[in-house]
């Protein structure tokens, strides 16, 4: 098992946002995490990337305990987090935002190669490398955020609502790209989504959170077919 979370509990002050969560995601698999607003999805991802320290429980990544390690150290161990909402730096150019993702590798040549790779995945970014990131559309920003994560050569990719505020057609493209990247780069991906159906469709695993607890975890297709999940999260 590549990512193994057991009994993870995380608090924001007195609020318990994640409670006794245990999940396991094998290498190369894409897990969709769905659940209502406030279910604790963002908190879970922030804890996995080191932005937040858990109150209890353990996180095993590639056989090592990583709970409580700082994000700048975890990115060096292959964990890349695209956080919710504003995940590009508007004051920087597209190229600088991308370079940022590879900055810890301290290798200008590899950084250039990674930019070429990102541009081949998202050609629209290639045309806009010298533009400031605040001139990009919402979809392009999301591509840039994912591109920056790829620049750091991740093995575990944590994506927090990449479809936020995007048009349906663009969402479909982004989801397809995430699926393709998972397979082609053999990534382990946690995809947090409000767009539950879309996420489950491309995922291998589905995890449903409610009030900080895991209420369902199964093959994505099983969850799609589950009447209770359908009623509560897929809306039909």
């Amino acid at each position: 098992m590549s990512l193994n979370v057991s009994n993870l509990t995380v608090h924001h002050g007195a609020i318990c946002a994640v409670s006794q969560v245990s999940i396991a995601v094998p290498t190369g698999k894409l897990a969709a995490i769905i659940g209502a607003n406030g279910a604790g999805k963002t908190t879970l991802l922030r804890t996995l990337s080191g932005l937040k320290t858990p109150t209890n429980g353990s996180i095993m990544w590639k056989g090592e305990k990583i709970a409580g390690i700082k994000p700048e150290a975890l990115v060096r161990r292959g964990i890349s987090h695209v956080s919710e909402g504003k995940s590009v730096i508007p004051e920087l150019t597209v190229r600088e935002n991308l370079e940022l993702g590879a900055i810890w590798r301290r290798n200008a040549k590899e950084s250039k190669e990674s930019i070429d790779q990102v541009v081949s995945i998202f050609p629209r970014l290639g045309e806009r490398l010298q533009q400031r990131a605040d001139t990009l559309s919402g979809g392009e920003r999301q591509m840039l955020a994912i591109g920056r994560a790829i620049m750091s050569k991740p093995q575990l990719l944590l994506l927090d609502e990449p479809s936020l505020g995007l048009a349906p057609l663009v969402i479909e493209q982004i989801f397809q790209t995430i699926r393709d990247l998972t397979t082609s780069m053999n990534l382990t991906v946690l995809l947090v989504e409000q767009n539950a159906m879309g996420a489950l469709k491309i995922a291998d695993l589905g995890i449903v959170l409610n009030l900080g607890k895991v209420v369902a975890m199964n093959h994505a297709q099983v969850l799609i077919d589950d009447p209770a999940v359908r009623a509560a999260y897929l809306g039909y």
């Binding site: 994000p71 060096r76 730096i89 920087l92 900055i103 750091s152």
Partner: peptide, 13 residues
């Protein structure tokens, strides 16, 4: 500009 993004990129902010 964005300490959190910088940190996630591996910078010791």
């Amino acid at each position: 500009y964005a300490p959190e993004i910088a940190q996630l990129a591996g910078i010791k902010t």
